[in-house]
Amino acid sequence: MIRIAIVGLGKIARDQHLPALAANPDYELVAVASRNAQLDDVAHYPSLSALLEDGSAIDAVSLCAPAAVRYEQAREALAAGKHVMLEKPPGATLSEVDALARQAEAAGLSLFATWHSRYAQGVQPAREWLEAKRIQAVRIEWKEDVRVWHPGQAWIWEPGGMGVFDPGINALSIVTAILPRPFFLKEATLQVPGNCQTPVAAQLAFVDSAGVPIAADFDFLQTGPQTWDIHVDTDAGRLTLSKGGSELYLDGQLTHQGPDREYAGLYARFAELVAQNRSDVDVAPLRHVADAFLYGRRETVAEFHE
């Protein structure tokens, strides 16, 4: 059994991490490190440093705090001999994730950069179906309401918070997993509210190594029904991943769907990595976001207010 601590007990930890851990017999949740929250019957510490200094018997930590503080937490945990699981995105910059990967390798510890959307029900079947197909075009529509999913979370509009790329990176994590060839950004437009540092919407145009166009439309202001769809046109028809990858359609016919087991999949994978002292650190989705910030054209739009 892996004795694990959660660091950062916010909405994502309560909604996803805690249920996944409770359902997995490979884990025992022994501690929580959080400035503002705690769990009944679980040891509580105000910070990861306090937890590690206390000498609590833990094998691993799951870091759920915002990406801007995650590098220092992960570095400290690895230095203390703990395996580390990183919420998405794995860090605020590519360089710090690379440094953590090298630190984990040198210490013989597991570092897992998680992409929960890759564990949606339709993603693996989509990848398998696309392997033998000639892809003609890809269209990503990822639109949701920030006021519903991140109420009052000002950090998302600060540097490192990523704005609309916080959900948009989920789409990129799926596309980098299902497409057979690498792809590259050709142009991007980022709409940034006048009182924010990160975009509220973005339009991206990629192309893969065979010249296939890949277009993405991200929007953080969609109200009503939310849109998390990926359409792939091929020589054998259209594949659509809908509802964040939980439903797979082939030419409009539903072929795969099921309950949400994304975080259950993450923790099952982390247990495998810990058992083998191996790491899984894929930064491809984060690299595409970094490229968008580096290469994209910025447009100032109306200020954002809750």
Results as ranks from 00 to 15, higher is better:
residue 2 I to G: 00
residue 4 I to L: 14
residue 6 I to F: 03
residue 9 L to S: 05
residue 12 I to Y: 11
residue 13 A to K: 06
residue 16 Q to G: 01
residue 16 Q to M: 11
residue 17 H to S: 08
residue 19 P to V: 07
residue 21 L to D: 06
residue 21 L to A: 05
residue 21 L to P: 05
residue 27 Y to R: 10
residue 27 Y to G: 08
residue 29 L to C: 10
residue 29 L to G: 10
residue 29 L to H: 08
residue 31 A to V: 07
residue 32 V to E: 06
residue 35 R to I: 02
residue 37 A to G: 03
residue 40 D to H: 13
residue 42 V to R: 07
residue 43 A to P: 02
residue 50 A to L: 03
residue 51 L to S: 02
residue 51 L to Q: 02
residue 52 L to R: 06
residue 57 A to W: 00
residue 57 A to C: 02
residue 60 A to P: 03
residue 61 V to M: 03
residue 61 V to F: 04
residue 62 S to F: 03
residue 62 S to Y: 01
residue 64 C to F: 01
residue 66 P to S: 08
residue 67 A to Y: 03
residue 69 V to M: 11
residue 69 V to P: 03
residue 72 E to N: 12
residue 72 E to Y: 02
residue 74 A to H: 07
residue 80 A to V: 02
residue 85 M to D: 00
residue 87 E to I: 01
residue 90 P to G: 05
residue 91 G to N: 04
residue 93 T to R: 11
residue 95 S to R: 11
residue 96 E to Y: 01
residue 96 E to M: 04
residue 96 E to N: 13
residue 100 L to Y: 05
residue 100 L to M: 12
residue 102 R to P: 00
residue 104 A to H: 01
residue 105 E to F: 00
residue 105 E to M: 01
residue 105 E to V: 00
residue 108 G to V: 03
residue 110 S to K: 08
residue 115 W to N: 14
residue 118 R to H: 01
residue 119 Y to C: 05
residue 123 V to Y: 04
residue 123 V to E: 08
residue 123 V to H: 08
residue 128 E to H: 06
residue 129 W to I: 05
residue 132 A to Y: 04
residue 132 A to V: 08
residue 134 R to A: 14
residue 135 I to S: 11
residue 135 I to G: 11
residue 136 Q to W: 04
residue 140 I to A: 09
residue 140 I to F: 09
residue 145 D to A: 12
residue 145 D to W: 10
residue 147 R to V: 07
residue 149 W to H: 14
residue 151 P to S: 13
residue 151 P to V: 12
residue 153 Q to M: 15
residue 156 I to M: 15
residue 160 G to K: 14
residue 163 G to I: 12
residue 163 G to L: 13
residue 163 G to K: 13
residue 165 F to N: 07
residue 167 P to D: 06
residue 168 G to R: 12
residue 170 N to F: 06
residue 170 N to D: 15
residue 176 T to P: 04
residue 177 A to L: 03
residue 177 A to D: 11
residue 181 R to W: 10
residue 182 P to L: 10
residue 183 F to P: 12
residue 185 L to N: 09
residue 190 L to F: 06
residue 191 Q to G: 02
residue 193 P to K: 05
residue 195 N to A: 04
residue 200 V to L: 13
residue 200 V to K: 09
residue 206 F to D: 01
residue 208 D to S: 09
residue 210 A to D: 13
residue 212 V to M: 11
residue 217 D to R: 12
residue 219 D to V: 01
residue 221 L to M: 11
residue 223 T to Y: 02
residue 223 T to F: 00
residue 226 Q to H: 08
residue 228 W to Q: 14
residue 232 V to Q: 07
residue 236 A to E: 14
residue 241 L to K: 09
residue 248 L to S: 07
residue 249 Y to S: 05
residue 252 G to A: 10
residue 252 G to L: 11
residue 255 T to K: 15
residue 257 Q to S: 15
residue 257 Q to F: 08
residue 260 D to P: 00
residue 262 E to P: 00
residue 264 A to K: 06
residue 266 L to A: 01
residue 269 R to W: 00
residue 270 F to H: 02
residue 271 A to Q: 06
residue 271 A to F: 02
residue 275 A to H: 08
residue 275 A to P: 04
residue 277 N to F: 03
residue 278 R to L: 14
residue 281 V to Y: 07
residue 281 V to K: 06
residue 283 V to K: 13
residue 284 A to C: 09
residue 289 V to E: 09
residue 292 A to L: 08
residue 292 A to Q: 06
residue 292 A to S: 15
residue 293 F to P: 03
residue 293 F to C: 04
residue 297 R to K: 15
residue 298 R to Q: 13
residue 299 E to M: 13
residue 302 A to K: 10
residue 303 E to R: 10
residue 305 H to Q: 12
residue 306 E to M: 05
